[in-house]
Write a protein that binds this DNA or RNA. Structure first.
Length: 899
RNA sequence: GCAGGGGUACCCAAGUCCGGUCAAAGGGACAUGGCUUAGGACCAUGUGGCUUAGUGCCUUCGCCGGUUCAAAUCCGGCCUCCUGCACCA
């Protein structure tokens, strides 16, 4: 692989930075600025996808450092939970995808053997080292003394998590409860989106069970999402080919599919199977409708799926396309009726019962829709599904109940559904069963169902007071871009209680119930506070057992008696006070930057936990959010094989080019796009600046001209516009001003003065030195290099941001230069229309323009290769003006005559 | 389904909050000319249409409609793309 031409330069400056310890941040008199980005999960190395968030963090850190802040920019590493454990399991099974992913990031065969041999913690630490190597190569301005890896691998950090949860529990924000989850009966664990072979995005939903009863007292429970249609039930459907079971459910005996029995057993019901019933045995039996008390019949339907709900279905043919088609099929098939020994007359007598009036439909919407869509039989599942969802939606939102409902006639379904369910409950007519919204298959190939977990621990995000505090914090925060604020507020509103513990994977056990481990998103909400302590904890080699809850309470709040606490914890009073001082100096978090996908969970949790655990003065100050990184316009993913490791990229094109190519590509919530073809544009401009810096010694002129003042004016403008955009994390705009516009101004200046020799050394040096500092956050290594070339002694990384000098920013000169540029455009235009000319005559309306242009005659002459250029006031009597062009002259627009 | 953010010329993208100065910054890409032994790099010009000695006009900013002397920008409706939706990092 070809190495970047900047590699040597970058290495050189990285070493100087490290030697000078300039990014190590200690308590000082300067104002501090504390920023963090999420710690990466270490089951692989960094790739371009990480680069956006990471580099944005570093650019901002560098910008703030140059603006007089004592910047703390630390970096930790994350290894809580299942993924790294899963990765090792896959390696063990020789999974080629996992092996190639690790190899992509630079692991060798022997590394991989070691991963399997030494397990997840070893592997996580291996990748942490890789990350640090790459970040150093990228020139990140991180204080490495504060790094750590979660959670139990750093016992002191684990202790910190324990303090966090003990405290949350004391405040009532951690509670125990039950909760439905999608569950794999084989793995005996919840099946999250990422663990699914099939059914990503499916969630849990509660079906109502309508308890129809046989005369014998046994229950035929029907699962439905529309219990309100029970009034229109004409029959039940049972699949004659399926073997059902008879089971004691609570105090009743239910006939249900075998699968349903399994589900109910996982849903807090006592289920005991006591026998079997063949579907066909139920045909023709009479059951009593639990609400209307009407008697209806059990009929056969092949579409009834034993996997779905109870495996028994209530038929409402007027409003359910499936039911109508089932009924129609049966009525047109006397053989079938005979086969199951049903009474032909009774079957033929069944008619749909109309319940709901929907605009656009008559009495029996399902019948109409089936005919309209030409659904031929119950095997036509595609069209039946479509008809069902269409009709259900229409009826739910626009449907109105008819007179069958007595008290509720005329009401909309959407407003009456819950009321009816309550009523049915009181009648002991219903029960419920949980289902997933669609089929979910676990990675282990097992079909999943819903389990109701008991004794799960929850973070009580639903707590109104907690929500209120969080919103109060949000209202005081800054957001970059400001648009995400409403997203945070919305998230706070809809956030419900969240399970915060798990049974498997790496992590910190819940201190009071150690069978549970604090789950990853829940142990990573306030760890920024740990950065402020990490350095001292390492240096003083403080054991975790000395970090008692009392100690943490004192450090984070300042409350408590240090002498007593020191005595109890055996932590020296001096160290205790030092820890407190570190925290108090660096906290709060001034900026947290992250990808936009984290807004709805991590970043919101981050705020929740801070307001719960810390005093107001330690609440976070701002959040920055950015988009993702696409590669050449397509989303990055393992399956597309377009994951580009950051390391490789830095080797190939250099850290600064990678940095600017990502960071300056998009701002706001937009996704950045890695494009190789953009690199040459950056590179050629960088090389131009480098050459200019080297060429400074060739400058000869000492007099000051208008052009010089113009250059300084423009560069001064750039200071302001760059800074404003850097401040708002709008790095694309910042690069526009600091880099592209500045380079264009410098190029224009060189052309105006007629080459480097005719440039004014003092002016040009000043301009370049400003530009170097303006681009330094984006191109830190190359800025250092250029600064050295022009004789700068101090490291740019810790230099002051250039000051905007109002006196040097001369509006009038910029206006004049604009007149000149416009005039040049006009001359170009005329030449194009009129053909080649040799002499130019310009007529000005003001002396000022005349004077300005007189200093630029050589430039104009050279540019158009004129033999002669003459300038006049428009009222000059001695002027040469055969076509009276001087009459066209206005301020800002001189008259032009060419011949 | 719920919530949030988008759709601007060949491509990326600024402009939208605070209507006119917007045929619409900047960057790519392409074309022509210059420079060069050649290639690259660099410089100039051009990239909706017609017109013109430096001008003027018409059409254009997802689609349809509205407000206004005036709309990429304000209002209403529609189409469409992206992100998240929980025990998963």
């Amino acid at each position: 692989m070809k190495k970047s031409k900047f590699a040597k330069i970058e290495k050189k400056w990285q070493q100087k930075w490290e030697k000078g310890k300039i990014f190590e941040s200690n308590i000082s008199k300067k104002p501090k600025f504390f920023l963090t980005i999420p710690y990466p999960y270490v089951n692989g190395g960094p790739h371009v996808g990480h680069s956006f968030t990471n580099f944005r963090g570093d650019v901002y850190a560098r910008f703030k450092r140059m603006n007089g802040f004592n910047v703390l920019y630390p970096q930790g590493f994350h290894a809580t939970g299942q993924p790294i454990v899963g990765a090792i399991e896959r390696l063990d099974k020789k999974d080629p995808v996992q092996i190639s992913t690790f190899k992509l990031f630079g692991a060798s065969d022997s590394d991989i053997k070691n991963f399997i041999k030494h397990g997840p913690e070893f592997t996580a630490k291996y990748w942490m080292k890789k990350w640090i190597q790459t970040l150093k190569k990228g020139g990140f301005s991180i204080d490495w003394r504060r790094s750590f890896i979660t959670t139990t691998m750093t016992p002191t950090y684990s202790r910190f998590v324990e303090w966090q949860y003990n405290t949350l529990k004391k405040k009532g924000f951690v509670v125990q409860g039950t909760h439905p989850v999608i569950w794999c009966p084989h793995d005996q664990s919840p099946t999250g989106d990422h663990d699914r072979l099939e059914g990503e995005g499916e969630s849990t939903i509660e079906y109502t069970i309508l308890k129809f009863r046989l005369d014998s007292g046994e229950v035929l429970p029907c699962g439905t999402l529309r219990p309100e249609t029970v009034y229109g039930a004409t029959n039940l459907w049972v699949n004659p080919e399926v073997e059902y079971v008879k089971a004691n459910v609570g105090k009743e005996t239910w006939i249900i599919s075998k699968q349903a029995a399994g589900k109910l057993a996982d849903q807090l019901k006592k289920v005991k199977i006591i026998g079997k019933v063949r579907g066909y045995e139920l045909m023709g039996k009479q059951v009593t409708n639990p609400v209307t008390r009407n008697k209806i019949m059990v009929l056969p339907a092949s579409y009834v799926d034993p996997e779905a709900a109870t495996g028994i279905v209530v038929s409402v043919p007027a409003h359910a396309p499936y039911d109508w088609v089932g009924l129609r099929d049966l009525q047109q098939n006397p053989d079938q009726i005979k086969k199951y020994g049903l009474n032909l007359d009774l079957v033929l007598k069944i008619k749909p019962i109309s319940l709901i009036k929907v605009p656009g439909f008559g009495e029996f919407p399902a019948v109409e829709l089936v005919e309209k869509m030409r659904i031929t039989d119950q095997k036509d599942k595609m069209r039946l599904e479509k008809a069902t969802s269409e009709l259900y939606k229409a009826e739910f939102h626009k449907g109105v109940l008819n007179n069958l409902y007595e008290n509720y006639a005329g009401k909309r379904i959407s407003e009456i559904k819950e009321v009816l369910i309550e009523e049915f409950k009181k009648m002991n007519a219903i029960d419920s069963i949980w289902e997933s919204t669609g089929r979910v298959v676990c990675r282990c190939m097992t079909v999943c169902h819903v389990k109701i977990l008991e004794n799960q621990w929850f973070l009580k995000y639903s707590d109104p007071e907690w929500k209120r505090l969080t919103k109060e914090c949000i209202s005081q925060m800054k957001f970059y871009p400001e648009e995400v604020r409403s997203q945070f507020l919305n998230t706070v509103d809809w956030l419900k209680d969240k399970a915060c513990t798990r049974k498997g994977g790496l992590g910190t056990p819940l201190p009071w119930d150690r069978q549970w481990i604090v789950e990853t998103l829940s142990d990573s909400t306030i760890y920024m506070a740990y950065y402020t302590l990490a350095k001292l904890i390492d240096q003083k080699n403080i054991p975790s057992k000395k970090l008692t809850d009392e100690v943490f309470d004192y450090i984070f709040s300042g409350r408590g008696n240090p002498i007593m606490i020191s005595k109890n914890s055996k932590l020296s009073k001096e160290v205790l006070k030092k820890l407190r001082r570190e925290f108090d100096y660096f906290y709060p978090v001034d900026l947290r930057n992250s990808g936009k996908d984290l807004v709805q969970h991590h970043l919101t949790f981050f705020i929740f936990h801070h307001v719960a655990l810390f005093d107001k003065k330690y609440w976070p100050k701002s959040i920055g959010v950015n988009g993702f990184v696409n590669v050449s316009g397509t989303k990055m993913s393992k399956s597309k094989g377009n994951i580009t490791p950051m390391d490789e990229l830095i080797e190939k094109v250099g850290a600064d080019l990678v940095r600017i190519n990502v960071v300056a590509d998009a701002e706001g919530m937009n996704d950045a796009n890695w494009r190789d073809e953009s690199l040459s544009g950056y590179e050629s401009r960088i090389l131009f600046l480098m050459k200019l810096a080297k060429d400074l010694k060739k400058t000869r002129r000492t007099s000051i001209q208008m052009v010089d003042k113009f250059l300084l004016s423009r560069i001064n403008e750039m200071i302001k516009s760059s800074a404003g955009n850097y401040e708002l994390m709008k790095f694309r705009s910042a690069s526009q001003f600091s880099f592209f516009d500045s380079v264009n101004e410098l190029k224009w200046y060189l052309e105006r003065v007629g080459g480097i020799k005719n440039a004014n050394r003092k002016i040009l040096t000043e301009a370049i030195s400003i530009v170097i500092r303006l681009v330094a956050p984006l191109l830190p290594h190359l800025a250092e290099e250029m600064n050295q070339i022009i004789g700068g002694k101090k490291l740019v990384s810790i230099s002051d941001w250039p000051k905007m000098d109002e006196k040097k920013s001369d509006r009038k000169i910029m206006e004049m230069e604009n007149v000149l540029k416009k005039t040049i455009d006009d001359i170009t235009n005329v030449l194009k229309l009129a053909g080649k000319k040799e002499k130019l005559y310009l007529y000005f309306a003001t002396d000022k323009e005349l004077e300005y242009f007189n200093q630029s005659v050589d430039f104009i002459k050279k540019r158009f290769k004129f033999k002669k250029v003459s300038t006049f006031r428009n009222d000059d009597e001695k002027k040469y003006d055969p076509q009276n062009k001087s009459s066209k002259a206005k301020f800002g627009k001189p008259g032009i005559f060419l011949e």
